[in-house]
Amino acid sequence: MLHLVNRSPYVSTSLDSCVKFAKKGSPILLIEDAVYGAMAGTALEKKMESIMKDFTVYALKEDLLARGVTNVIAGIKEVDYTGFVELIEEHKPTTWT
């Protein structure tokens, strides 16, 4: 199952809940304000890296660009909307808001 997360990890527990309930090995796609969690050199970088040990983390390119997040943590995969659609083709989704 693909897990969509759309809220900033600085204000919301959405990502924490996603990680808690998602099956290990599942893909997680960060969209909207959740993409701030993909930025390198932040207080959350270590946490993201630990999440990446159990999950494949993606971030939506259009939302990264919109927010000026260019320094993405190594290992987080950037996908555009076409890539988003391809992830949905492969997995049933749910959303953590």
Partner: peptide, 19 residues
């Protein structure tokens, strides 16, 4: 909220891929 924009962009991309 951005969700309307996200949904629109997603729907558009999905239709372009023939879904």
């Amino acid at each position: 909220h951005e969700s309307s924009d996200s949904a629109y962009q997603f729907v558009k991309a999905a239709m372009e891929k023939g879904h």
